[in-house]
Amino acid sequence: MRIAVCMKQVPALSDGGMDEKTGTLIRSGQKAVPNIYDLSALEAALRSRESAEDENFAIDVYTMGPKSAEALIREAYAYGADHGYLICDSKFAGADVLATSYTLARAIRENGPYDLVFCGKQTTDGDTSQVSAALAKWLELPSFSGVTDVRIIQENGKDRIYLKQRLDDRVLTLKAGLPSLIAVEKETFPARMPSLKLRLRAGKKEITRIEAGSFRPESGGIKEKEYFGQKGSATRVIRIFPPERAEKHPVAELDGKEAGKQILDIWEGLGLRKERNHDFEERARDSGLS
């Protein structure tokens, strides 16, 4: 059994700034960490391996990013991944969901076939939750999102998967054939702690680098470079701005009479109708506030 796990390195703080010109995340100066949702995808893959009696069970990790994203693969090795592929080329930079999923699909197809592809639900920087479904489309695989349980089972001598899928108002229990793509829920696959022994080995393990030129030409003679990076992206960010926040107002502690007077002043300031103020004054008088 072979499993591919897609992972991404993200800024340690999800409130990092955006470059207003390019509409992309400013990553410089921010520490990079594995996307926490992808650690759950890796955990799901590790659990599958532990429950399978298969000596040839292999877990390959794929990540797209700069050279520094090697650190993510080494981290994945510390958790138990067998092999890592770094998809790294300036031609891949600035990719949106479409271009990212296409590039990941090309790398996975190039090194496949895989029985299962695991993804996290979303990333903490992009937050689109769409890469897994787009990847399944490019790979022409059945796709299951919101997965809270996954087990590899045998039926009529064939490997299949048993899944629990969380939908808005129900949980689906289903079986599916292989290969398939699964996007897992973070809560049901909390990542284990990375192992010291594996971490010490991680530094010496090989990482395979994949560049734009690494791919064999696609059949059909498509101009593939137009599918990569910013060129291959279907979306452009026009403007990034923080949402408006309510202004902070001081909290005043007043007695009833003073509070009533101030409320009336505010109403008047807002141009509310005068008779409404009279109503309020009458009620305030009745209740002993004035």
Binding site: A12, K31, P194, S195, L196, R199
Partner: peptide, 24 residues
């Protein structure tokens, strides 16, 4: 870390079970 792992292993601490975190 490797040296300390070997010492712990000699004291019966299973090296496969030791945790190691490295980021903030």
């Amino acid at each position: 870390a490797g040296t300390l792992m070997e010492l712990a292993d000699a004291r019966g601490s299973d090296a496969d079970e030791a945790w190691a975190v490295t980021d903030d």
